[in-house]
């Protein structure tokens, strides 16, 4: 059950007031607003539907679809590495934007698991690749188009943004209107806190060179023990910053990149590189990689601002 758009907007504004005015601690404000949410939920009708697509043999993918104002773009939310649609950053944005009348489509990338419902732990057997996720993004974009949504904005967070970039590289002629890439980073070497990923990449390559694509444990992203095949590992690892930059540069869409000013994973050079690749970079001061606490509102504002830049009447 979810709150109605009006009630949710009220909750958000109340939270903004309470916390912005610094009259409550963040936790207290959150608890207060949650309590208020419960009360409002009780009187608010629920809406949203689960969409299921077949992405392959015995592979179904699902997304939460909330149709909104048809004059407004549909926003396709891509969650972070091994996460689900319910990851806080994307969830809050999806809910807020849905409440604001935007159509939202929040899939769970399968990550090799049909109708995946939960985040995947690092130690799970990872039978997914970056490319597969990129293809799934494409499936959702196609579906959205099939639903009549003429403007589609793909919003990704963290690794989700990387996967969006992979999608852009995969489909340079994407019908997506723009992308909003929150906390965009990259796999590959040079990534902060990469563990032994570089060495593992060398090992993985060697495995492949030997024709061994069996399961092995690698370090990838925040997973120190990431169990996957060499090829699948490398599908992520090889999507380095150059490839991201190349994908952005070569894409025909408008790419907005939003960083938190306090995101430790993002270096100044990266920002400069993105800017040089014609990405529109937005910095929210004080926010971290996940835009926690009050920065979620700042993020929302920026996203809405980004969403509101192009008039609805424009078509591609």
């Amino acid at each position: 059950m979810q709150a109605s758009p009006i009630s949710r907007q009220c909750i958000i504004r109340i939270k903004q007031y309470l916390f912005g005015a610094s009259r409550m601690t963040p936790g207290l404000a959150t608890r207060y607003s949650l309590g208020l949410s419960v009360c409002l939920m009780l009187v608010s009708p629920a809406w949203g539907q689960m969409i299921s697509l077949n992405s392959g043999p015995d592979m179904a993918i699902e997304a939460e679809y909330r149709p909104g104002d048809s004059s407004r773009p549909l926003i396709l939310f891509i969650h972070g590495f091994l996460q689900t649609r319910d990851f806080s950053t994307v969830r809050r944005l999806a809910d807020a934007l849905a409440d604001n009348g935007y159509s939202t489509l929040s899939p769970n990338l399968s990550l090799g698991i049909s109708k995946r419902k939960r985040s995947v732990s690092c130690e799970s057997i990872q039978l997914h690749s970056l490319n597969a996720s990129a293809r799934e993004i494409g499936l959702w974009v196609d579906w959205a188009r099939q639903q009549g949504h003429r403007k589609i904005v793909v919003l990704g967070h963290s690794a989700g943004s990387v996967m969006v970039s992979a999608y852009l590289a995969l489909q340079p002629n994407t019908p997506v209107d723009k992308t909003i890439l929150i906390s965009l980073d990259y796999f590959g070497p040079g990534r902060p806190a990469a563990f032994e990923s570089e060495a593992h990449a060398i090992s993985a390559q060697k495995m492949l060179d030997k024709g061994d694509d069996g399961l092995a444990t690698f370090a990838l992203s925040f997973c120190r023990q990431y169990v996957t095949t060499a090829s699948r590992f490398l599908s992520y690892f090889n999507w380095n910053e150059q490839k991201v930059l190349s994908a952005i540069k070569n894409s025909s869409v408008s790419n907005h990149v939003i960083f938190g000013g306090q995101d430790k994973r993002i270096g100044k050079s990266w920002i400069e590189d993105l800017v040089s690749k014609h990405a529109l970079v937005h910095i929210i001061d004080g926010a971290n990689h996940f835009f926690d606490e009050t920065h979620e509102f700042d993020l929302l504002d920026v996203v809405e601002q980004i969403l509101g830049d192009d008039p609805v009447s424009e078509t591609r």
């Binding site: 015995d58 698991i113 049909s114 995946r116 939960r118 995947v120 799970s124 057997i125 039978l127 399961l215």
Partner: peptide, 16 residues
Amino acid sequence: DELFQQIDHPEYYGYW
């Protein structure tokens, strides 16, 4: 989810 992963793709069932 992993249960279904294995049912659908049992090639790594042993490891799992």
